[in-house]
Simulated assay, not measured.
Amino acid sequence: MPSHPPERPVTPNGVARAAAIRHAALELFTQRGYAATTMADIGQAVGIRGPSLYKHVASKQQLLVEIMVGTMEALIAEHDAAVRGTVDPRERLRRATEAHVRYHARHRHEAFVGTREIRSLEEPNRSEVLCRRDAYEQAFRDLVQAGVDCGRFHVTSVRLASYAILDLGMGVSVWYREGGELSENEVAWQYGEFALRLVGAPDAD
């Protein structure tokens, strides 16, 4: 199945309806899982019956792809914005980690579906999403490697260090809730500290 269906004319109402359909699909994929969710379920959630839903979306697979590709594109964009404006390896890693944590605190369902439903993607969609995931992991690996190269970070394995930092942030989506004991800012700052300790970075001057 092609990952990009034929384009349809887009109107303001159409954009809003498409966003509502994606949101409903995300909620249902989170609650029931991709396999157990039907297009009829999604249509019912947004008040659209049967064939009318296909005027807005080609398939359930397309919805999953849009959710997962959108998640990765958002993560990559926020990472790039976070590290822009500084060349200091320590500060770049802190900012990238904080952006990673903030995204997972704010988008728990996207994180859950992105992890669990990679198995549900068909080719070439699966490879497309995995390529973006690899690029995002590589961005963290490059940050850690830059710190090692200039003698600021000290790790046995750059790859394992980058995986550990990513796992830290992804775990936030499991337990973090607004209004809890710690604010998003406190969690993001503390996880930035965890990342710096993990790579053996010295305290800031």
Rank of each mutant, 00 (worst) to 15 (best):
L198V: 06
L168T: 11
A19T: 11
D88R: 13
A204Y: 09
A20V: 03
D205K: 13
A16C: 00
I165D: 10
M72K: 05
A111Y: 10
T38F: 01
G151T: 03
R92K: 15
G50F: 04
V113P: 04
D205R: 14
V148Y: 03
E123Y: 01
A161E: 07
L75W: 06
Y191V: 08
S127A: 14
A20G: 15
P5D: 01
E123G: 11
R17K: 13
F112G: 00
Y136K: 01
V15H: 02
T156I: 05
R8Q: 12
A135P: 00
Q44C: 04
M68H: 04
E66P: 00
Y103Q: 07
R152C: 13
G151D: 09
R94G: 01
D203Y: 10
V46K: 05
S127L: 07
L143Q: 02
D134G: 06
A25K: 09
A161Q: 00
Q44W: 05
R106F: 08
A58K: 09
E91P: 02
L160H: 10
W189P: 00
L160M: 11
S173K: 03
R32M: 03
V46Q: 06
T38W: 05
P51T: 04
D149F: 04
I21R: 01
L168W: 02
D205H: 11
A16D: 04
E178M: 03
R102S: 06
R84C: 06
E123M: 08
Y191R: 03
P2V: 09
F112T: 13
Q145Y: 00
C131M: 10
F29D: 08
Q61W: 04
A24I: 12
G47I: 07
V10N: 00
G14N: 07
H100V: 01
G179F: 05
L168V: 13
L121P: 12
G171Q: 09
A139G: 00
S173Q: 06
E128K: 11
N13A: 15
L166D: 08
R8H: 03
V10M: 13
V69W: 01
G200L: 04
